[in-house]
Design a protein around this nucleic acid. Sequence first.
DNA 1: AAACTTAGTTACAAAAAGTAATTAAAGAAA
DNA 2: TTTCTTTAATTACTTTTTGTAACTAAGTTT
Lengths: 112, 112
Amino acid sequence: MEQLCPRFEKAMQLFGKRWVGLILYELLNDAKRFSEIEAALPISGRLLSERLKMLEQEGMVERKVYSEFPVRIEYVLTEKGAALQPAIQNIRQWSEHWITQEEVDETIANKE
Amino acid sequence: MEQLCPRFEKAMQLFGKRWVGLILYELLNDAKRFSEIEAALPISGRLLSERLKMLEQEGMVERKVYSEFPVRIEYVLTEKGAALQPAIQNIRQWSEHWITQEEVDETIANKE
DNA sequence: AAACTTAGTTACAAAAAGTAATTAAAGAAA
DNA sequence: TTTCTTTAATTACTTTTTGTAACTAAGTTT
């Protein structure tokens, strides 16, 4: 029986946390502020805050504070975070090939 | 503000479910039976059963029953499931570059 | 029939996530 | 100086998901 690589396991635990993939995706092209990410995704402020803190601790995201009015805080991918771009783009391509409109509709229907 | 693609969102919700990435990874090279996956990952039987059922419903995994003794049930990736191979391999490569041994140790330490 | 094997399921406790109201900080307006 | 805005969180509370461990089902062997 093959042994699971601990680095890969940790990466999967990270990436497999709810919202993490979508948050990283939002930051792929440009830095975003808290409220922008919150508006772009159906995530609550509580969890977004928690996830950004985690991603910062993991060294995947940097938090930048600009002392303007009103205060502007931007989240940017670090090199480590940006290195996930290929994986994220792969999933994006996969979803365009393999997720049908019907499946999307079903998922929405189940929510309501 | 850019609109999030619903197919991609659905894909990320799927992939972002705990254990899904690791289960798919286990099935990448060959079909496996329930007990093999259970032994390879620190997942409980309850969740493994739930996830396999979900992946089957999503058309990513096929459940094959062989009427031997003892009964042998194998889980195989469908074409749809196998199409995630590049994404999974990307995350694997990423983890080898970017997850340090120290990070792995910390994660283990926090568990205990 | 009693025991063994794999593949689950069930009942219950613990952890994570969802929701909505509240707070913090910091400069602007009065 | 007080009060008001604005963004960025945090807190209190409920619901959902996950973890744990014991139990069931179906078929086989003894």
